[in-house]
């Protein structure tokens, strides 16, 4: 199918660009390490139980890491007018949106996978709850969908670096809350039943945001 073929072509191109420049994954992973250290200064170690603190620190770090990545993924298309190049290709503009979302998702996911062992050490986690295998991709995908749309949107404003967080944070809070709560439940070993409702919240959000993104992206990127 030409729809998915075009998406795969754009994603592959994004991966190739990243492979050349190594601009996103390396720098963002380093940023994540830095954030974890900062959080440990902010909350005096020992005052807050780790199992309370870990999920929040984890997801807010990932959210900020995401914001950096989305901005990069979208701004790659800005140099040399490449976005126009994509818009001139014989497919709907929703293809660009889906491809860029997938690229952002993959980059953030890689950063997460790189930094998880680090989290495990710093927060003294001795086991890896299998529920995270579902929670992390679902939440990351949700954040990537809105992040990509809003990064493209704030590219067209002055103060783009400020506009992205201002718009993104209030809108992703529902997804982040679901991720924090379900990660907390999973880490404290409360089992599948306590995680499941939050999984649904994330699934619903991912779908709603994806639909809105597909319908509005074209209007946002058009000059």
């Amino acid at each position: 199918m030409s729809y998915w073929r075009s998406i795969a072509t754009i994603v592959r191109k994004d991966l190739l660009v990243e492979l050349r420049g190594k601009e996103i994954i390396l720098s963002v992973s380093f940023f994540v390490f830095l954030m974890v250290f900062i959080f440990n200064f902010a909350f005096k170690p020992g005052t807050i139980p780790l199992e309370v603190m870990t999920p929040g620190v984890l997801w807010f770090t990932f959210l900020f890491a995401g914001m950096l990545s989305f901005q990069r993924v979208v701004s790659t298309e800005q140099e040399n007018g490449c976005l126009d190049g994509l818009m001139l290709c014989p497919h709907g503009r929703d293809v660009i949106f889906v491809a860029k979302t997938i690229s952002s998702f993959l980059f953030v996911l890689v950063v997460e996978v790189i930094s998880l062992p680090f989290f495990a050490v710093v927060f003294n986690l001795s086991f890896f709850p299998v529920e995270l295998l579902l929670i992390i991709p679902l939440a990351t995908f949700g954040i990537s969908i809105i992040g990509t749309l809003l990064a493209a949107l704030s590219m067209n404003t002055r103060l783009r670096e400020v506009m992205l967080p201002i718009l993104l944070i209030p809108l992703v809070v529902p997804v982040v809350i679901a991720a924090v709560e379900s990660t907390g439940n999973a880490l404290s070993g409360e089992g599948w039943a306590s995680v499941q409702p939050w999984i649904w919240v994330m699934v619903i959000f991912d779908i709603v945001f994806l639909v809105i993104g597909l319908l509005t992206f074209e209007h946002v990127i058009e000059e």
Partner: peptide, 21 residues
Amino acid sequence: YAVSGDKASRLRSAVGILGFA
């Protein structure tokens, strides 16, 4: 903060649609 008036209306329409979630 949008770069042009024409664009501003479209950008905020998208935010308004997204925000209703």
